[in-house]
Design a protein around this nucleic acid. Structure first.
Length: 261
DNA sequence: TGTGATGTTGAATG
DNA sequence: GCATTCAACATCAC
């Protein structure tokens, strides 16, 4: 699920349903994803408080509590919220928050790669983490400056959360495809003009995805995601091939996407 | 049965 | 400091 547009969509959903409601109770079924506290502390931190605001940088989504503390919800690979009234808990639910209006806010996470932390100070936390600027907030000149002194595949560059925060495996491939750049292209070999194009496509793709609530079915027809499988031939542009870059499975079209090196 | 999956981290290596 | 590779984390679906 979660890269920047997905996390943004999850945050929007959270904002419209979970904000400004007193938390009556919290039940933790599996505290494995609580990374800096145990369930007792987590429960006592939330109980009686309200979520009053949210903040997001890249894939890091924070909910601000009325007691001044913040909860980081990093969704990992499969983290998500379920809002429901029914008795039975959703599959893969790890904890559930009961709100005063009767709504249950369940956090589900099939693979348990999510990270939930109590954060006293978001700014300090992000600083220590050295998280890069949000991919949708960064200016073109800031982005251009990030290339300085770096020499690695463009895909690894885009996916490095210390460089720019929010891009994961799928959107990195999407950006490279739409820029017609081979994902293994070395950053140093990209001209200023090409870097500018990467920036513009990055913004355009992420913004479009956010506007459509990360609902892939309504993404533009000419996007890569639905062809992102070995052997596909989108619009006669060539055969989709597969390789590993930075340890992640990468799809691209030789010839259509130029390799700069 | 083995493999890989939209993520992050830390260790080891060059 | 920079970059790469690998393993680990934990689970499920194909």
């Amino acid at each position: 699920m979660p890269e920047l547009p997905e996390v943004n969509t999850v945050m929007k959903g959270f904002r419209s349903t979970a904000l400004n409601q007193t938390i009556l109770a919290v039940e933790v079924d599996d505290d494995h994803i609580l990374r800096n506290c145990h369930s007792e502390e987590f429960i006592s931190t939330l109980k009686g408080e309200q979520f009053i605001d949210t903040y997001r940088q890249g894939k890091y989504f924070f909910a601000v509590l009325s007691n001044g503390l913040n909860i980081l919800f990093h969704l990992g690979m499969t983290g998500d919220f379920q809002y429901y009234h029914e008795e039975e808990n959703p599959r893969f639910e790890r904890f559930v928050i009961h709100l005063e209006n009767g709504l249950k806010v369940g956090f589900t996470d099939q693979r348990k790669f999510a990270r939930i932390l109590i954060i006293p100070d978001i700014e300090n936390y992000l600083k220590d983490l050295k998280l890069g600027p949000d991919a949708l907030q960064i200016s073109r000149s800031e982005f251009q400056a990030l290339f300085e002194g770096r020499n690695l595949p463009i895909k690894s560059f885009l996916m490095d959360q210390h460089v720019v925060a929010g891009i994961g495996n799928l959107y990195a491939d999407e950006i490279c495809y739409q820029c017609k750049i081979h994902p293994a292209s070395i950053t140093k070999a990209l001209s200023t003009k090409k870097r500018k194009e990467v920036y513009q496509k990055m913004i355009e793709i992420l913004q479009t995805a956010c506007d459509r609530d990360a609902y892939y079915q309504i993404y533009p027809e000419d996007w890569f995601w639905k062809w992102r499988q070995e052997g596909q031939d989108p619009h006669g542009k060539g055969r989709v091939e597969k390789m590993k870059i930075g340890g992640r499975t990468t799809y691209y079209i030789t010839g259509y996407q130029k390799l700069y090196q």
